[in-house]
Amino acid sequence: SLSVDNKKFWATVESSEHSFEVPIYAETLDEALELAEWQYVPAGFEVTRVRPCVAP
């Protein structure tokens, strides 16, 4: 099958004044980091952490 098993990760994104967490959907932690950097670094943010979303 061609289905992709995307998992939810939380990326911590920082600017000079703010820090916030955004959801990233990817297959692996490395891919989540790449996606977060691709989305947020060009906008002037720094991705400081990516972690798996742990269900309660």
Rank of each mutant, 00 (worst) to 15 (best):
S15W: 07
D5A: 14
F45W: 05
T48M: 04
K7E: 04
E14M: 12
T28S: 12
P42S: 10
V13Y: 04
Y40C: 04
V50Y: 01
P42M: 07
A36R: 01
F20Q: 03
A43M: 15
F45P: 02
A32V: 02
F20R: 03
E27W: 07
L2W: 08
W38I: 14
L35K: 13
E14C: 06
P56V: 10
S15I: 07
S16F: 11
A55K: 09
W38G: 14
S3R: 12
T48S: 05
A11L: 06
V22A: 04
S16W: 09
S3L: 12
E17I: 09
E34M: 15
I24M: 03
N6I: 15
A55D: 13
A36K: 01
T12R: 08
W10P: 01
Q39N: 05
A32M: 02
Y40G: 04
I24N: 00
S1M: 11
A36C: 07
V47S: 02
W38M: 15
R49C: 07
F45H: 04
E27P: 14
E14N: 08
V4E: 08
H18P: 01
Y40R: 06
P52A: 11
Y40E: 04
V47T: 02
Q39V: 13
P52R: 07
C53E: 13
E21L: 07
G44R: 00
P52N: 05
A26Y: 02
V41H: 10
Y40K: 03
A32Q: 00
R49L: 12
A32P: 00
D5Y: 08
V13T: 01
A43K: 13
S15P: 01
E34P: 01
P42C: 08
T28P: 00
P56R: 08
V13C: 05
C53K: 03
A36F: 04
S3G: 11
Y40P: 04
V47D: 02
Y40H: 04
L29D: 03
I24P: 01
P42Q: 08
S3F: 08
E21A: 05
P52D: 06
E46V: 13
V47N: 02
E21F: 05
V50F: 03
V54M: 11
A55W: 10
A36V: 05
V50W: 02
V41Y: 06
S19H: 08
K8D: 03
V13E: 00
P42G: 11
V47L: 03
E27I: 07
A32N: 00
E46Q: 09
V41I: 10
A36I: 05
K8H: 11
R49H: 14
Y25M: 06
W10N: 01
V54D: 12
C53P: 04
L29V: 06
A26F: 02
A55G: 12
A36W: 03
W10K: 03
S1V: 09
R49G: 14
E21T: 07
S1E: 12
E17A: 09
S3W: 09
V4R: 13
C53F: 05
A11D: 01
A32F: 02
E17F: 12
S16N: 11
V47M: 00
I24L: 04
V22G: 02
P23K: 05
I24Y: 03
A55L: 11
F20H: 04
P23H: 08
F45R: 04
F45N: 03
P52E: 14
S16I: 10
F9L: 01
A11Q: 01
T48K: 07
L2E: 11
F9I: 00
E37K: 15
G44K: 00
V22I: 07
V54Y: 11
L29I: 11
V41P: 06
E27S: 14
D30Q: 15
E14P: 00
P23W: 08
E34C: 12
L35F: 07
E17V: 08
D30M: 12
L33P: 00
Y40D: 04
N6W: 10
L2N: 10
T28N: 09
K8Q: 07
V13F: 04
P42K: 09
V41C: 05
P42A: 12
V22R: 02
S15D: 10
S3Y: 08
T12G: 02
Y25P: 02
A36N: 01
F20I: 04
F20A: 03
Q39D: 05
L35E: 04
L35G: 02
E31Q: 13
E21G: 06
D30C: 13
V22L: 04
S16E: 10
E37T: 09
S19T: 11
Q39K: 10
P56Y: 08
A55E: 12
E34H: 14
F9T: 00
V50C: 00
A11V: 14
D5C: 15
W38V: 14
S16D: 08
S19W: 12
P23D: 04
E17D: 11
V41S: 11
E46C: 06
A11Y: 02
V50I: 13
A26L: 01
